[in-house]
């Protein structure tokens, strides 16, 4: 019995803490603002979702095209016996980032759909919590875009080095 009580106490703290934090994080004025405006916010979110879908499709098309280009270039580098292992590594990282980007976008889009469809007037706190999580997911996608940029910059530099070698 003595052992069970602390375990139950810890479990209660773990289960209730997020709820306490969520309730405590919003003032009455903020909750009222969400209740009053959240339906309009959901309409805005629908526009954001449509725009994001377009961004995802077009970015996906370009990312895949670049991946194919890098794969073909790497094959030719190997065929021509040019030593450039960094290009293989960059392409591999790029492939992993692409897979992560795809799965993270799917999660983000699902979270967006849930937020758009929920009853926000009666559940403003849940709406806010889900919005905070959605922002985190979007920030992660933004991070992936930056990572792609960095990898493409590195690849471009690697190609420049090979070009210099070929010219000499």
């Amino acid at each position: 019995m003595k052992r069970v009580v602390p375990v139950i106490a810890v479990l209660l703290v773990v289960l209730v803490a997020p709820l306490v934090r969520a309730e405590g994080s919003l003032s009455d004025a903020q909750l009222n603002a969400i209740r009053t405006n959240c339906v309009n916010a959901q309409i805005n979110l629908q526009h954001v979702q449509a725009s994001d879908k377009l961004t995802r499709i077009n970015r996906g098309y370009r990312y895949e095209a670049l991946l194919k280009l890098m794969t073909s270039f790497n094959s030719r580098v190997v065929e021509n016996k040019i030593n450039a292992p960094e290009l293989i590594t960059i392409a591999s990282d790029y492939q992993k980032t692409w897979e992560l980007f795809r799965s993270e976008y799917s999660e983000y889009d699902d979270a967006m759909t849930t937020l758009i469809q929920m009853d926000c007037k009666n559940e403003p706190t849940t709406f806010n919590d889900r919005l905070v999580l959605l922002r985190d997911k979007r920030a992660s996608l933004n991070g992936k875009v930056s990572k792609f940029d960095g990898l493409l910059d590195s690849y471009q530099s690697g190609v420049d080095v090979i070009k210099q070698g070929v010219q000499e």
Partner: peptide
């Protein structure tokens, strides 16, 4: 992040 900030969504 701009598209999802509270000002853009007008929720405070």
């Amino acid at each position: 992040g701009d598209a999802l900030n509270s000002d853009s969504l007008q929720i405070g």
